[in-house]
Design a protein around this nucleic acid. Structure first.
Lengths: 247, 247
DNA sequence: CGCCAAATTGACTCCCTTCAAGAGTAGTGG
DNA sequence: CCACTACTCTTGAAGGGAGTCAATTTGGCG
């Protein structure tokens, strides 16, 4: 089932940042049965209401979102995912998907055999801790998004998501310091912040007019990070980027 | 440190519903160092930005909420918690609190020594699975709330939270079938759904006028559950109440 | 009985939505 | 190489749902 030696190195790299792994841990990870899968933009990777696939995936390249559709047909995106992110860790232990995961761009994932990962996690505390932390950080991001969508006005709401994307892309080594290529259409951004595309468009223009950010197509850059953070009411704490390795 | 023999039985009961526990698992849980703590209504149990306390708690009686306050002073509640719920499981592995946990009513919790719980979890797969599932269900609820606050109109939004509370109280054995005592003021309900107290008041009245629900003070009951679910765009899937025990 | 928080109601305002049309922009194929 | 097509982005005008401000009523409780 194994295809590339290096595919799982990415996972080791990610987890090492969150929990100290022993040589044995790393070897165990490298021996996980896995395949590499590709999805075209807009394809569903996980569907709400369906039983979980027999594998758990993390992103090798590209972007994905989690989303739900209401009965009225409105879509809400509840998180964005980029290189290195696990996209269906919830299926490790829950036996039915409660939301959709959709490819945002061309997407490549490393799909790990679910049972093997489950055994590994339950047998190896360091790996369990690292993956658990990953899930906890995801939950923290959801909490922030509830706040963002529930209590911030349009400009702050949009700026907040942009701040998050900027920081996470930087942390993942995807963006240069100057700015980043937003992997979302304005309609998708609207679905992420709970607004209409029209209002997102107007608000983005207003943010540019106020000198909060620059835009060139979907390439976003901030003039003054501190000012942007202020407008966005952004506090990076919830991303737990500094999560220290335990003693 | 142990005070009552039965305090941890509640934890065993809760976890048994999610993962099969052996006699050894149960004994290990019962021997966890713990204390019982009480908080008055409105007291903070966990504060954003602070390092975690050296214990993890679950609710013995009463209600609590998770919330954040924006720079503009607006409060957003992102989850409600009742008997049996763990309220700071995130601190098992994250070393700084990213949100507040606040007592909603008089609150009694069982506070378990953090290090001891951590060791237990990493040593006992069944317990790890059960607690992990607990965290995953919390995350699922956050996702639903992002959708609720981001994409539903006021009536559905409010009805949705009421549906969730009704089901969870019933699952926890706190409410009778006929209805339930909502442990929230209208202002707190407003903070949970991202609206103003005034609008929550008006919308509640409209829901009553439309025959969707009955109200007697804070005692809520539904006339027609199916109709309420429809108005609320409510699908209980996300609560994972049926989460089967693994083989 | 009096105090104070919670619930209620009215009138006015405004942020965001809705509807609709036009302008870029990228990919495709003849 | 350029027309064709389908998104995506942009802009205008008008309407509505929710917010704001403020006053009144209700209800729990010492």
């Amino acid at each position: 089932m194994s295809t590339t030696v290096s595919a799982l190195d990415q996972m080791i790299h990610k987890l090492s940042g969150r929990s100290a792994l022993t040589g044995e841990d790393k070897e165990a990870i490298l021996s996980l049965p896995h395949t590499i899968r590709s999805y075209h933009a807009a394809t569903y990777v996980v569907r709400e209401g369906e039983p979980p696939p027999n594998h758990c995936s993390f992103i090798r390249s590209g972007f994905a979102v989690r989303q739900k559709i209401t009965a009225q047909g409105a879509r809400q995106i509840m998180s964005l995912h980029l290189v290195g992110d696990f996209i269906d860790l919830e299926h490790l232990f829950l036996n039915i998907a409660d939301h959709n995961v959709q490819a945002l761009t061309e997407l490549e994932v490393v799909a790990i055999d679910r049972r093997a990962l489950e055994s590994l996690v339950l047998a190896r505390p360091n790996i369990a801790r690292a993956l658990w932390i990953d899930a906890l950080v995801d939950a923290s991001i959801y909490r922030e998004w509830v706040t963002n969508v529930g209590r911030r006005a349009a400009p702050a709401r949009i700026a907040h998501v942009l701040c998050e994307v900027a920081l996470r892309m930087q942390a993942a080594g995807v963006s240069t310091n100057g700015g980043f290529e937003l992997p979302l259409t304005q309609e998708q951004l609207a679905d992420a912040v709970g607004l209409t595309p029209v209002h997102v468009n107007r608000t983005l223009k207003a943010l540019v007019a106020d000198g909060i950010l620059h835009r060139d197509k979907r390439y976003i850059s901030f003039t003054d990070w501190n000012r942007t953070k202020e407008v966005a009411d952004f506090n990076a704490l919830y991303l737990h980027l500094e999560q220290a390795k335990p003693a």
